[in-house]
Amino acid sequence: MGIRQGGFQRKSKASDEIPSSSMADIAFLLLIFFMVTTVFQSDKDRPIEWAQAEATKKIDEKKKDILNIWVERDGSVYMNDRLYTMEEITPVIGPMYAASDRHLLISIRADREVAYQHIDQLQKQLVAAGVVRIVFATELERRMTRERR
């Protein structure tokens, strides 16, 4: 029990390695946590029948930069799960468009049977709000098979 044996030279019995056997459990816990909490869509789909077009192109734009405007068969307009009247479009979109630094892309998702006058009114409202880029959302139509993708 001399001073040489004690003090600084004493060796600890605890391992100095981080236990790695539970790493897999931690990884899975994180994986499941992110799977459960990830949200892909901000608004719910409205029940519409899609228009089809052969020239359909993928939109190369970030999800958050796209605003969906749904037009149902009776001409009612929905944005972000809320019903709007035609006259409300310009005052609602205008500030949103300005806030996005004019990056916002408007995706018009209209029922294929809706009368064109509703689409025209919507377009006039969007022009009044200063919107430049819009997309008529369509499904890809194949010439021969008419198959839906």
């Binding site: 077009a53 064109y116 509703h118 025209d120 377009q123």
Partner: peptide, 28 residues
Amino acid sequence: HPDASYKFMIDVLDALQLGGATRISLQL
């Protein structure tokens, strides 16, 4: 025409875009 279905307009727009048209004006 105001009473025409949206899909007819899409058909025409589709054909124009397939033809490579970029100068398109949509009117009532």
